[in-house]
Amino acid sequence: MKYIVETKDLSKSYRGKQVVRDVDLKVPKGCVYGFMGPNGAGKSTTLKMLLGLVKAGSGEAAIAGKTMNQRNRLEILRKTGSLIESPSYYGHLTGRENLEIVRTLKQAPEKEVDQVLKLVRMERQQDKKAREYSLGMKQRLGLAAALIGRPELLILDEPTNGLDPSGIQEIRELICELPKRLGMTVLVSSHLLSEMDQMADYVGIINHGQLIFQDRLEALHEHSRSRLLLKVMNRTAALKLLEMRQIEGRVAEEGILIPELSDDRAAALVQALAEGGAGLYRVEERQKSLEDIFLSLTGRRASL
């Protein structure tokens, strides 16, 4: 597989505290890669290291096959657009004037300003001063700036942060369109699993600075699928019955957790538990929260 971003043992420490630890990111070309993790997990620091905004403590990062260093950083980043944390803009300039500055620095053709304005649906607000924009508009302006120069790779750090639901939807649609319409790869970070579910093809999960999961979105769904919680009077009998039916049961504080079953298998199991003396009195469906997934992934880190 061809990776547009590839890091090897990327690490960073601040005052002796390691915030990013041996991260091996592999972003396939032409996809939307969701980089997830709770706040403070090391997402922004990793993305900043990719852009050379933060110096890596150790390890290396390659973009489009070229290992980045101080000498070739700008040359490599010329094919990259980015929006890190909050949008960057000059409040006293209009949206268009802001984009003209980026266009001049990127040495992109003049027509690109109109093209990106159209792409982010900002043509009508282009002559308004940026400080008068709503947060959503500023975010779109930041996205437009990142799109100038037709980059092969777009790095977006929490682009929907602080947006209202309609703004989130708009940005999300736009991100999903980019690989298909312009052939770009989008590396987007978020702390929301639901958001990634609607955008990403691949996901990477970082927790306490460590990349604990990296695979296709479907593989993550395996981890996030729901479980059934069996509440029984006699756990020993219930576990024995589950073993007989080759169903993996895990004893939790509230009861026994088993993987999700098809309706007919669930019905047969309920009947068997009732008739087998397990004293089944309740069956609950448990959907794993993001936190649960993080916890389970952290526990399984060695095997991932």
């Binding site: 700008l74 980043l77 980015s82 944390e85 803009y89 000059y90 980026v102 620095l105």
Partner: peptide
């Protein structure tokens, strides 16, 4: 204007 507009993060990817 660079501080207020948070532009250093953008500029540092475009120029030295």
């Amino acid at each position: 204007m660079e501080i207020k507009g948070n532009t250093l993060k953008l500029l540092c990817t475009l120029e030295k």
